[in-house]
Amino acid sequence: MFEFAAALTLVSMALVLFRAVKGPTVYDRILAVNTFGTFSVILIALFGFLDGRPEFLDIAMVYALINFVATIAVTKFIKFARLGRTSNVEEVDDI
């Protein structure tokens, strides 16, 4: 069963990668890369069970967090066209 799930995940990754390469708009690519990251997380988890070491689940969770942070950064870049604070804010306290 895990083999089947892993094979299906790989097929989905191929499809998503195609969309990331082809994707006409920016949003196609953001969504594709985010989904690719999610599939990577699933693949690590499945590989842990396939290999008989479910401890890999921790790594999958860390990857999910990194994927989330990266997607936040990308969407913020798209919205504000910069990563720092918006320029019209005059006084902002320290981070």
Partner: peptide, 30 residues
């Protein structure tokens, strides 16, 4: 698009490191 794809490339490499049992390297790469 190049930046997005390079991020996905890195994540792919990280998964490959996990598959090759180099978990610490995979953490750094990710």
């Amino acid at each position: 698009a190049v930046v997005m794809l390079s991020g996905s490339f890195s994540l792919n490499a990280a998964v490959l490191y996990v598959v090759m049992d180099a978990v610490d390297v995979a953490f750094t790469e990710a």
